[in-house]
């Protein structure tokens, strides 16, 4: 597992405000805060490291403000990071730190190397474009220029994510929340990326709809062999989708391990509190 990774994160750190390393001394789980009283900076994430193998799903769990979304946004390139390295197997066989790429090349990774599914479908989709058109955007960005083949591929993807084909040519803005999320999944998978990041993919959906979307995600992850990072505050989601996970608290990883083990026997007091809350 140490060499066979698709995505590798090394000591990723993000400090909002002055990137003064003294901020690290009075922040973190032991201090119970991410905001440094000394420098006024916020240590949103620090020393975050993990790797994900092809076909594996890794969970990142923590409460609101624990830094899990910051980590995801730093990997995706939606946000700059202060320090660390993000490596993708498809970029120079992992020898390149993608954080060093210029913004243009960085954005280009999102075409076929790295996909993101956001909690809010409006972030990943254009609501004033049809479902098929949204997928066409991903395909044309990757150089598809054949109308018939674009149509076929879009239909195939929507079928796989269980969106009725009769709605393929309707504007995504007219879709329900659950269906939008399915379209977002279809778009994210359009160019068969080796890595996919899922940020709270079912938060905000009704319980019954969320269960259906979760089921779909689990099947897709199994079928495609994509390496996935699932960010969530919900242990049920992490339990269903991932085999390994890390627990974040006040910007740091406090515990990591197999999801089963972590749920049965959490070591860190914060993990125990989280699991206790989920099991209550």
């Amino acid at each position: 597992m140490s060499t066979n990774w698709a995505l590798k994160i090394e000591s990723l750190g993000k400090i909002h405000g002055i990137p003064d390393l003294r901020s690290l001394e009075d922040t973190g789980p032991e201090k119970g805060t991410a905001k440094s009283a000394l420098t006024g900076s916020i240590v949103a994430a620090w020393d975050v490291s993990f790797e994900v193998a092809p076909g594996e799903a890794l969970g990142v769990i923590g409460e609101s403000g624990s830094g899990k979304s910051t980590v995801m946004r730093c990997i995706a390139g939606d946000q700059g990071s202060t320090t660390g390295a993000v490596r993708l197997r498809t970029v120079h066989d992992g020898h390149m730190n993608v954080l060093d790429l210029d913004p243009s090349s960085r954005r280009h990774l999102r075409v076929a190397d790295l996909s993101v599914v956001y909690q809010d479908p409006a972030e990943g989709l254009r609501l004033n474009v049809t479902a098929g058109g949204n997928i066409a955007e991903a395909l044309t960005a990757a150089g598809w220029r054949h109308f018939g083949r674009i149509r076929d591929r879009a239909a195939e993807l929507l079928d796989r994510t269980e969106v009725p084909l009769s709605r393929m040519d309707d504007l995504v803005g007219t879709f329900s929340g659950g269906m939008r999320q399915r379209v977002q999944l279809a778009k994210a998978l359009a160019n068969e990326p080796p890595v996919i990041l899922l940020d709270e993919p079912t938060t905000g959906l009704d319980a019954s709809i969320a269960a259906g979307v979760l089921d779909l995600i689990r099947n897709l992850l199994e079928e495609t062999g994509v390496a996935a990072v699932v960010v969530s505050h919900d242990f049920a989601v992490i339990e269903m989708l991932t085999t390994r996970c890390v627990v974040m608290n006040h910007g740091r990883i406090v515990e990591s391990g197999l999801t089963d083990r972590l749920l049965e026997d959490p070591h860190h007091p914060y993990s125990q509190k989280l699991v206790g809350a989920a099991r209550a």
Binding site: G133, E137, A138, T140, A141, F147, I150
Partner: peptide, 13 residues
């Protein structure tokens, strides 16, 4: 120019 292509795609659809 992906979004330009999307506008042509949508027009055709």
């Amino acid at each position: 120019y992906a979004r330009m292509w999307v506008s042509l795609y949508e027009d055709k659809v």
